[in-house]
Write a protein that binds this DNA or RNA. Structure first.
Lengths: 72, 72
DNA sequence: CCATATTAATCCCGAGAGGGATTATTTTAT
DNA sequence: ATAAAATAATCCCTCTCGGGATTAATATGG
């Protein structure tokens, strides 16, 4: 899967994984402890979404984030 | 480098990379197009930081983000 | 040890996030 | 094609983010 260079890519990745797991937005929102509306905006790539909540969602999905520097 | 599981880890990774490149917060903020205060809060792991700006900072640093799912 | 640069912590304020609920639109399945 | 489920788009509201500026604390070096 490609690198995340913007919020659209992040939203798409989250949405794809959610659908792969056959979970609805309502269910994932509940699992993550965020509002459904937040999850929708996150999946749509809204840049203003808060990082902490986004990480909660990814954790609930079992997604891991890797930071790659030139030296890593 | 370790996976990012919370905002503290993300902030630390960003700070470490900035220092490795010998850039000050003021310089990086200018390069990224964000305010210095935002950058400070980001590096300190404030969960409320906005994703879009965070990605701008990472782009300015040349950091790439990879989303890792069980299927990837 | 003192001067300077870098980082951190406030203050005020406007702009926007995010929650819940409702309604509309789209998608999926039968 | 129609019914049901899922997603999207509003509305109102409160709360906090984020910017700039200033002041304090910490780190770096001469």
């Amino acid at each position: 899967m490609a690198y995340i260079t913007d919020t659209d890519a992040l939203g798409n990745a989250i949405k794809a994984e959610r659908r792969r797991q056959n979970i609805t937005q309502v269910e994932l929102a509940a699992l993550s402890g965020v509002g459904v509306r937040f999850l929708r905006e996150l999946e749509k790539g809204k840049p203003g979404c808060q990082i902490g909540r986004a990480i909660s969602v990814m954790s609930a999905l079992g997604i891991k984030l890797d930071v790659i520097t030139r030296e890593s």
